[in-house]
Design a protein around this nucleic acid. Structure first.
Lengths: 158, 158
DNA sequence: ACTTTATTGTTCAATATTGAACATTATTGG
DNA sequence: CCAATAATGTTCAATATTGAACAATAAAGT
């Protein structure tokens, strides 16, 4: 049955994607280590970055942006609130939603964490020329669109 | 303090990498859904693929290849063994190591799962020309090397 | 106005993942 | 041969993540 095996590993796009996935996983691992000095993990960084950019976002919107479940936010955000990184205020118009904000400290930690992440990316992508980076990003955007289409398919056929 | 924010988001390699990370995360999400019909998840697929290619590998080696802890394998593999997908046999030379093999069913599931993954990759990368895929893979290999160097740095300075 | 449906967030049980401490077996240095 | 060190796998507690069921509020349909 090595016919199938050969087919899979010969597939050029398959091999390419495996490299992408591996790089991502490694980046995550290294980022986790480097963020540990701030006592946060990648999921917290994602939250901080999004609150930095989209102040007053709701938990629902945040979960959608991060591609995680609402329950995830319900578990994680109270922890970050206790640590004084974020603040949750009820919306006055709609009593269901909680709007999210960075605290002073949250903003500071967000900036340090983004600096760490940017530094890591700069170091590890420095050998890849800018044009190639842009080409990569373009390909990724197309892939992201295709994947969103896949997700829509799955949901509507359910 | 939007000076810092602007700097971060203007950084071209930063933006490029964010696209990569997002594509990976989406791919993982969609793959998880598509694998559910086989009652397995991406981590199991990773294990099956590696056992398919590297028969008789040890738990340690497998963990290293998958970039996870040994304890992860100690928790996951017995489950897969109970489900009849893999088999663990003690090495005769070294009584510490357990060598891993696919069962008949494990091989079948592995092939189905790889077919699902390959199909998904083919569909979502079809809009990216082959040459671009290769260029992407090359960049990723360089990034992987850089990240391994980072990990070595961290470990040796500890 | 009122009933139904949809949205937002929470809770809970199930599952996954990790790192540290540990037991067993190998290897190394004397 | 023996003691010290290293390697392999396991266990356990801590933490994360998910989906389903739920409560409260809003929106839509009648």
């Amino acid at each position: 049955m090595n016919k199938n095996q050969a087919l899979v590993w010969d597939h050029p796009r398959f091999r390419s994607w495996i490299a992408v996935a591996r790089a991502c996983q490694l980046m995550q691992t290294v980022l986790t280590r480097e963020l540990s000095e701030l006592d946060i993990k990648p999921p917290h960084l994602d939250i901080l970055v999004n609150l930095y950019r989209f102040e007053g976002i709701s938990q629902q919107e945040l979960a959608r942006k991060l591609l995680v479940g609402r329950s995830n936010m319900s578990m994680t955000l109270p922890q970050m609130e206790k640590r004084g990184l974020v603040e949750r205020r009820g919306d006055t118009k709609d009593k269901r939603v909680l709007r999210l904000f960075l605290t002073e400290e949250g903003r500071a930690v967000a900036e340090e964490a983004m600096a760490i992440q940017t530094g890591l990316i700069e170091r590890t992508l420095s050998s890849t020329p800018i044009e190639q980076c842009h080409a990569m990003a373009e390909s990724m955007e197309k892939i992201i669109l295709a994947l969103h289409a896949e997700m829509a398919d799955e949901t509507e056929s359910a």
